[in-house]
Design a protein around this nucleic acid. Sequence first.
DNA 1: AAACAGCACTCAAGATAAAGAAGTGCCAGA
DNA 2: TCTGGCACTTCTTTATCTTGAGTGCTGTTT
Lengths: 331, 331
Amino acid sequence: MLNNRQDELLKLIVEEYVKNVRPVSSKSLCESLKCSSATIRSEMSMLEELGLLEKTHTSSGRIPSEKGYRYYVDHLMVPKDLTGDDMLKLQTIVKNNQLILSDSIMKSLEIISELTDCTIISLGSSSNNTVVSKVEVIPITDNSVVGIIVTDTGHVENRNIMLNEKISVTEIKQTVDIINKYIVGTPLNEVNEKLEFEVKPIIGKNVTSQKKLFEMFCSFINDVVSDSNIQMAGRNNILKQPEFNDVSKIRNILEKFDDREFIKKITDKKDNDEGDINIYIGSENAFDDDISIIKTTYPINGENRTIALIGPKRMEYDRVITLLNYLRDNM
Amino acid sequence: MLNNRQDELLKLIVEEYVKNVRPVSSKSLCESLKCSSATIRSEMSMLEELGLLEKTHTSSGRIPSEKGYRYYVDHLMVPKDLTGDDMLKLQTIVKNNQLILSDSIMKSLEIISELTDCTIISLGSSSNNTVVSKVEVIPITDNSVVGIIVTDTGHVENRNIMLNEKISVTEIKQTVDIINKYIVGTPLNEVNEKLEFEVKPIIGKNVTSQKKLFEMFCSFINDVVSDSNIQMAGRNNILKQPEFNDVSKIRNILEKFDDREFIKKITDKKDNDEGDINIYIGSENAFDDDISIIKTTYPINGENRTIALIGPKRMEYDRVITLLNYLRDNM
DNA sequence: AAACAGCACTCAAGATAAAGAAGTGCCAGA
DNA sequence: TCTGGCACTTCTTTATCTTGAGTGCTGTTT
């Protein structure tokens, strides 16, 4: 491993580079390390040999390599206390009890995205513990209805459903009553099975015109189950980062934000500790080599929501993590 | 006004510039206009004197000025037939009758945004003709409920409502029944009045614990009324346009896309002909001098939705307008 | 052995100059 | 009224030079 001074040096370089976005010179660290620039230079080249530092050209200062950031995050970073300013802004939301929990967390995430100039994505793996609270089907025209599903977390999904044939209001009510009777209280991931094996036979006994409605509704609920509900805050913040001044790079990233399938994959990665904070630096994530993702999960009303904070590889890791921890502790 | 050749010249320059994003030289037009470059140059300087053309520097070719685009759009542009390719892509959606009207129009708009590399915003002035179809309040926890409002256009709005005190299920049902009884069938813009003067007195007679629920619900419905439902397609398309290679410019525009208040103002502008296509070139709109907006309204289920197509000032006006007209004709 | 001062070397970035290309404007003649 | 010809302008590209901020290395000091 590294000696004390090397640790200290790497830490200084990461933090200096994160702050100024400029290769860090040996001279600029003399004062902090209380030794000459020559000494620092020799240490620097050792760290470079170990793959922890890089140069942008032969005679440039050093910047942290991906491995350098990893080492920093794993060994050097010390959790920072929240600054009064950060805390103040967050508290106004946390303390506001006009909002239900999930809304107030979303608001907090918006604040954090603003404070850090990062993008935050919140996505729920709703199918696990969430339970259907209510199903509604409301007639709109002669041959179209709107289907609504409400879960016990207060989440509402709706879809317009087109029917080939005219269905009477009473027929709709019949179908919905049957669905409700069997489905309310069912966990989302079991709804499919129940619809297929318990509800379908019963519907079958009734008027055939209900079949179409039932099928459409099944497909709707299917989508709800498979569709992790995605929320995003600070989508454009990446544009503020000086290293993203290349339009094609920005475009690449912004298009990934809009790609639901891509975003959903963020949840896929299984990590050692659920609930822990996981960090994916540069090529460790699929976004972009210059991007890091800080991922964690919050249990909200029994639902596990994944929170992903997306920012430049050159990120204030300590501050970001402190903010996320503060949010968890004050939930 | 301009003579025939000047018309032809301006038309050629606009269309050439739109295609190649490069100042157009006199020489490049000799063949099309069947005269020498010197002749074209003298015509060009006349058009420049009239403010229809501009130069990027003293010895550059010409580009259309804002006034030039305006003249082109008002007098020179001829509606183009749809290319087979464009039509094909649109038709697969239009002909799909699994979707209700508003959904299929949204799909079509997505296609158009893709075909034109423009961003399309669809926003509804829901309060005018839309009528409440159903109101629901579903208990989530002891002191929170989710409120749902469904309109006759199949639009669903929902909100989590936090209550200070515990309210029993039957009490909620009572309140909702009263609200439903008076509100269903009411146009959105009259809901407020009705709630205040007809429903409130009745609620007042009942248990006080309902008051809070009623108030929260009023605030919710208020927001629904004032909130024009915004949909967006191709948000990142602006990044594909070569003239937007400046990150600060892109940021400025993308941030406006996320600014609901700003977007809503698009509907505000009153125009001569409702239902007609309106064009705002460069400084004629509040977005950016290099951006044009093509705006029109579609009546969908009695609701007037505003469609705004946002792209570079250097836009294929004829094609875009043909696409929008085709969509209207095939609705 | 570790730290340091000194010096040669490297590279990026900015300034300046020159050459070439792509235009225009204008004039005189058909 | 149109056109060919020519001088002039500006952008673009390329090359050269300079400067400044760094490093790497070496020999000396502690």
